[in-house]
Amino acid sequence: MPEGESADDRRDVILVVDDDEDIARFVEFNLRLQGFDVILAADGQQALELIERERPDLAVVDLMMPRVDGLELTRRLRADPMTAALPVIMLTAKGMTVDKVHGLSAGADDYLVKPFDTAELVARVSSTLRRNKEFREVSPLTGLPGNSRIRREIADRIRGGADYAVGYIDIDRFKSVNDRYGFSRGDDYISALARCLHRAVISVALPPAFLGHVGGDDFVFVCTPEQVVPLTSRVSADFERAADALYDATDRERGYVELKDRRGNIRRAALVTLSIGVTVSDAEKRLTNPLEAMTVASEMKTVAKSQPGSYVAIDRRRGVGDHGYRHVK
């Protein structure tokens, strides 16, 4: 990737696989006109070699080809974990319904019947890419959007010109939960935090706040500056109640879990709480870069972690004087 270019700036790469060079060049020309980068393969075997090197974002694959045909290529892609999620649009012969069925059964995401309209080709490619990106951006555990969608949300707020706040949240001592109970119970804590955040977002009413899942126990919210205190107060209180209920009764009642370190020594870990870092962009200080806003919020989360209990550290970019508050049960 060129220096200074982000993943969001990179053009989508389309692999066109067809042994008919005229059709392949026709598809390449029209996709390039729409801003896509295009690479060509004459059959499925060459396509597999290219995919390993180039990692395209989508493949347009002809059904009938020598060596490895479109059906076999699609089956191999779906069988390999590294390529299983690559979207495939199958090119089929006119009127051959059975070919469409076989293509979709092999794992194709969509199909086009030859001869096809240029506008339809571009529309199918664009819509399939969009669906695939939306699917990849959603956390399978929480159903919440991920990093790319979070950055777009902040960028939209920046373009709109309104004041906004970005909050970065994670669970204190989350590792102690995984170490004590295993990863399945750890997922229960993450899911509980997602539900508590959802209720908190609803409770602050309009304008709607945005909620995203960065990964693991890390979450981000985007809202108005006025919504920060009610949102963070609600989620802190709700999560501590929900988290306490997930502990075994003995651990919950004594207020800590016991864990063995590598030397076999017993150490105590307090029950989980939340650390929340917030940055505010308003008339006094404008943040015009989504990555900067997330970075500052993450830095403030580190400040919050230096405080006991659930803590919210807020940086309004008005100098060195940060301020925050602690949630009290």
Rank of each mutant, 00 (worst) to 15 (best):
P2F: 06
G4E: 10
E5Y: 07
D18Q: 04
D19V: 08
D19G: 11
D20M: 14
E21Y: 11
D22L: 08
A24F: 12
F26E: 12
F29T: 13
L33Q: 07
V38E: 01
V38M: 04
I39E: 09
L40H: 03
A41N: 10
A42F: 08
D43V: 00
I51W: 01
E54Q: 14
M64H: 14
P66I: 09
L71R: 02
L73D: 01
R75Q: 15
R76P: 00
L77C: 00
R78H: 01
P81N: 00
P81I: 00
M82C: 07
A85E: 00
I89L: 15
A93L: 02
K94V: 06
V98L: 13
S105R: 15
S105Q: 15
D109F: 12
Y111V: 13
A119R: 13
A123Q: 03
S127W: 10
L129E: 08
R131C: 01
N132S: 14
K133H: 15
E134R: 08
S139I: 12
S148R: 14
A155R: 10
G160H: 07
G160I: 04
G167K: 00
Y168H: 12
K175G: 05
S176M: 01
N178L: 06
Y181V: 02
D187H: 02
S191C: 14
A192R: 06
L193R: 04
L193K: 14
R195K: 13
R199A: 15
P207Q: 05
P208F: 04
A209S: 15
F210V: 12
L211F: 03
G212P: 00
V220M: 09
C223D: 13
P225Y: 02
P230K: 13
T232W: 06
S233M: 06
S233F: 03
E240T: 08
A242W: 01
D244E: 07
D244V: 05
Y247H: 10
T250C: 05
D251C: 03
R254D: 07
V257E: 02
G264I: 05
N265M: 12
R267E: 13
R267F: 10
T273L: 03
T273Y: 00
T279H: 09
K285V: 05
N289Q: 08
M294T: 02
M294P: 00
E299A: 14
E299G: 05
K301F: 01
K301N: 07
G309R: 13
G309K: 12
G309Y: 12
I314Q: 03
I314M: 06
I314F: 05
D322S: 12
H323F: 14
H323Y: 15
V328E: 13
V328G: 11
